[in-house]
Design a protein around this nucleic acid. Sequence first.
DNA 1: AATGAATGAGGCTTCATTCAT
DNA 2: AATGAATGAAGCCTCATTCAT
Lengths: 194, 194, 194, 194
Amino acid sequence: MNQKRPKYMQIIDAAVEVIAENGYHQSQVSKIAKQAGVADGTIYLYFKNKEDILISLFKEKMGQFIERMEEEVKEKTTAKEKLALVIKQHFTLLGNDRHLAIVTQLELRQSNIKLRLKINDILKGYLNMLDTILTEGIKSGEWKDNLDVRLARQMIFGTIDETVTTWVMNDQKYDLPDLSDKVLELLVSGIHQN
Amino acid sequence: MNQKRPKYMQIIDAAVEVIAENGYHQSQVSKIAKQAGVADGTIYLYFKNKEDILISLFKEKMGQFIERMEEEVKEKTTAKEKLALVIKQHFTLLGNDRHLAIVTQLELRQSNIKLRLKINDILKGYLNMLDTILTEGIKSGEWKDNLDVRLARQMIFGTIDETVTTWVMNDQKYDLPDLSDKVLELLVSGIHQN
Amino acid sequence: MNQKRPKYMQIIDAAVEVIAENGYHQSQVSKIAKQAGVADGTIYLYFKNKEDILISLFKEKMGQFIERMEEEVKEKTTAKEKLALVIKQHFTLLGNDRHLAIVTQLELRQSNIKLRLKINDILKGYLNMLDTILTEGIKSGEWKDNLDVRLARQMIFGTIDETVTTWVMNDQKYDLPDLSDKVLELLVSGIHQN
Amino acid sequence: MNQKRPKYMQIIDAAVEVIAENGYHQSQVSKIAKQAGVADGTIYLYFKNKEDILISLFKEKMGQFIERMEEEVKEKTTAKEKLALVIKQHFTLLGNDRHLAIVTQLELRQSNIKLRLKINDILKGYLNMLDTILTEGIKSGEWKDNLDVRLARQMIFGTIDETVTTWVMNDQKYDLPDLSDKVLELLVSGIHQN
DNA sequence: AATGAATGAGGCTTCATTCAT
DNA sequence: AATGAATGAAGCCTCATTCAT
């Protein structure tokens, strides 16, 4: 589909760039069209409306990322290895694409609730994957057997998300993937001595 | 001051209610004024502009909360007790005020970057408090001595924040303060067996 | 009246100063009240509304000036002497009071048509005086006997007014009363050789 | 350009009409758009903001007039003939377009100082032309050789302007171009006998 | 499939005026 | 006579979307 309709991805990539550079509220459709090298009206041949651009953007960028990761996770055996992979990949994806990181961590969150609920739907796959890893780890005896999976998943996702956001807000001064091991260790062992 | 200028808090409370019920982008100044029972122009006797209402809202509600908590934290002795208090209080404040929770977790995040940076400034006090608790716990031997304080703080804040947001997005179906102990335990001991 | 109600002139003088320094559209009633050292509401004990301040301002400042000049003109004998006096006095009044000059030449003209018609009413006395001087000069043989009094008056007033306005717009760099003789000569003899 | 962008002149002409009929402060953008038969937003495809409409209005109407007159003046030989042409044309332009006369003499003067300074810039061409005519007349011996050019120009412009304004304020009861000869004679010979 | 000129709804803020004290 | 907190009407401009070409 993308090859047959090359302008589709062209517009999405333009949107990421424009939003990252101008901010969500300064990213008018006309600006995205200009950056994509198409007319304003052309946008509406590929997307229903502006919101659809943003949802599609998230779906394309994160959806593909999640699918790919689900594949790779299968190749790991222990739950800890799987969790390590998720963290590493998450940090690597955004650590290598500053524009995408700015858009997902800061700009896209300025959208209205309706859009954010749709974004959450896309994230469901990610969260389900975390749940699976957690459930497997409990079964295998790696994790506590009385672990509250939902809370644990919120801790994992909340920690990853907050770590990326802080990194973005600090102007990406340090290397994000470098933090993977320490974050994994924190999530697995907590902060206490021993 | 608030007693001498009753309309100040009156407007802020109205803003919380209006934003929680109508959403950030559907909360016109005129709507807030009507809810507060004052004329539109009266708003501008107490606030510089619309953005100032939102910053003041966050400052009053969260700022006071943070100050109060800093006092209470001093009365606890161990770092774990202090962390337990913070989590409990945080969940209790927002768990008891659904409107405020909606506003802080969902609506206020739709504001522009400039406003969010000002909100972050107010949150600094909270984050500093967490850092202090972490540093003390390291000194006292409660926490790992090689703990990365910044990452640990991001885990704690990210977990608390994500837990509240999930609770809000699930229409507050369950009791938030009830989760305090489990969340504390997760943060302290991690997810692994033993 | 002015001595019994000292705040009346106090407010008018404040208005001149505020308008000269801030411009017509930046001269809010509250600013004038503050400059006059009275409360906003007090203004309305002395003036019907904001427009009334401006009309009164012009009436007091120009009205008195016109009356005084009408007296002084009587003491002169020839029409040319009378015209010379008018020009000299006009230039001197405004040349010595830069604030008043700014207000009458620039700021007050930004008022709406209704106000300007009222200002024109006050100027009637001035224009009538010019008409009288012109009529007398024709009778005495000083001026052309086929002189169109209305046109001649428009030339005289237009020239004086334009001269003052240009002086104000040039930041009052040169001395205005110094120009009196040359302006008189131009009006009397025109620009042609001989 | 005007033929290729017909809406540009359409909007300017609408602005003249609306301002002449409703007054400067009652001429909302929406009213001008309605009169021009376009949507409000269309205004902003052709003008930066409301002020820009007014500046453009003056530039188009007076600017073109000045340019045309500069051409025609060249065809006259004596300074007096040139001055006669200027007066005649000025009176004819505004005498034939009552709406434009109302706008330039009354309404546009209510604009703020910033706008009026821009209008003055456009008038510079006109004033320079007067200066040139005066300088040439001095050289040719038509005018006094000790003539103060600046003052003479202020007399000429002030007289023309005041004559038009009086005509407008008197509801254009008499014929303006008819006054040209008498005004010329006054400016050239002054008011005195012989 | 592509264009881009045209549309028109919608809200923050100012400030002259009032009136209870 | 004096205060000053409160009122509330009113308009410029942006930008997502459409549609004739």
